[in-house]
Amino acid sequence: MNKNKESLHLSSPAINTHMNKRSQIWAAFRSAFPYTIPIFAGFLFLGIAYGIFMHSLGFSAIYPIIMSFMIFAGSMEFVAANFLLGAFNPMNALFLTLMVNARHLFYGISMLDKYRGTGKKKLYLIFGMCDESFSINYTANVPANVDKGWFMFFVTLLNHLYWVAGAAIGGIFGSYVKFNTEGLDFVMTALFIVIFIEQWMKEKKHYSALTGLGLSVASLILFGGNQFIIPAMLAILGVLTVLRKPLEKAEVSV
């Protein structure tokens, strides 16, 4: 992408090691950024929608900015806005959040290994582990010469920035947006479909992918859009546990 990388390398060993570290970080940034471009579009749009939503509920721009920065879990922030409008019930807020965000538990279990050895960045990687950061960091083919820790750090950081920027723009300028954005939110669906295909092509057996897809559809039909996640997760966990023996024999290729 960028051809002036060579020009960064200068003489003197001291400068060289310093430059090496910097160019290493810069290389990680450059390979991470293209992966986040779809999220740039999606988060800016959704963030603006969220900011406008908060604006329409009568909250000043500082609310979407602080909430997008601190919570950084898209769907939950829309729900949190409703908490703020209702009666004060902190326990209810806590438990509903745990339910809506329970899927993060699966992300964490999947990232135990990948986040290992990332040093101080690990805390931030876990803090910012939203759906999009998780799925990119899990599936991306990081080039061998790029530092994986910094790569994942920049994916997470850029996504976080897009989301806060979107929420800020929406909260501040919400009432002026006129361009017809209907349907732009499909960018997130498209992203997950692409990641699903990429993951599909990487593995030899598709038990797990099909289990996830099939049981989620079944759970959605049975329990409806607002309550299907927890039953789907339990069913996935159950089926994958039962399939452990046969699957481990067929060795999972990831």
Partner: peptide, 12 residues
Amino acid sequence: VLPSAVIGLLVI
């Protein structure tokens, strides 16, 4: 095994 399944869940 969870990632493939959970990405399927995300699509849905």
